[in-house]
Amino acid sequence: MSVSTRTPRAGADKAPARGSGPKTAQRFRLGEPGTAWLFMTPALVLLAGMLLYPIFYTLWVSFSDFDLALFEPVGWVGWKNYEMVLRDPGFLESLKVTGIYLVIALPLQMILGFAIAFLLNVEWRGRGALRALFLIPMVVAPVVAGGVWRMLLDPLWGVVNYTFGLVGIGPVEWIGDPTLAMVSMILIDTWRWTPFVVLIAAAGIMALPGDVYEAAKSDGAGRWQTLWRITLPLLVPVMAAAFVVRWLGAVKMFDIALAATRGGPGNATNVVNLYIYEKGFRSLEFGSASSMATIVLIITIVLTYFLFSISRRLENRW
């Protein structure tokens, strides 16, 4: 079968009618939409297999009784799994823990990221090297980052406590204390992801139009006025985009918590993804775990939609 992507055009009726010529000259034409669908089919099949199928399977499991003997969902149980999950204090606590992490970590990373980007934007010797060094945390695998930081923060063997000890502080139970464990998790996550925000912010800053600054300067605007009245408003779309991208990454928080704190002590750093993982793959409670995953998916979609709306409004406002 040969495929033609030519679209019908004026005078096409003058072409020999299909089937009227010799057989060897016959061409099977799909037309533009058909060809487009043909080329999209592999991608669609992949998408359906790798995205839609897992989602629908998770939904199916969430409404079923998962038989461990057969290792597959059997029997429709309606909302039973969801009722159990909503009564599960561990799940509700993990949502709270995730909320605390997001509320602290995301603004912290945004502020630090943009502040560092401004510093890197100023001409000074060695900023190129520093900019390159900033990328290192981003290329370290999260599990490795969590494990390494766990060693660095160890009260007996870790270099952080050793340094604190030199000035008479400690030993500090960075991972053993519930509050400090959350602080540690946020610190590790910030260490890893702030460079990403720096990267986006630096690109945004470099793309700012120079003529606006020249006009502001000739109008006598000071540094702070320029920053508050020109730079930050112009950067709002970049900030909004960076925040949304970072949000989408942060809601998936799992590996750093697993490697650094294992969700502990107690539930202090048990983010919802880790809780679902443990429920599913350690306790083999696949029905409950699937219900939790579905609830989290819905919450994430709603919040992401909300964030996109705000982002669009901010872009339109400035």
């Binding site: 519930p178 107690g266 443990e278 350690r282 083999l284 409670e285």
Partner: peptide
């Protein structure tokens, strides 16, 4: 294993003074 998971969590809460 599910029983041990529950015990692990509650043991950790007691260890860290959360309970």
């Amino acid at each position: 294993d599910a029983v041990q998971q529950i015990l692990a969590l509650q043991t950790s809460r007691a260890m860290s003074g959360q309970a």
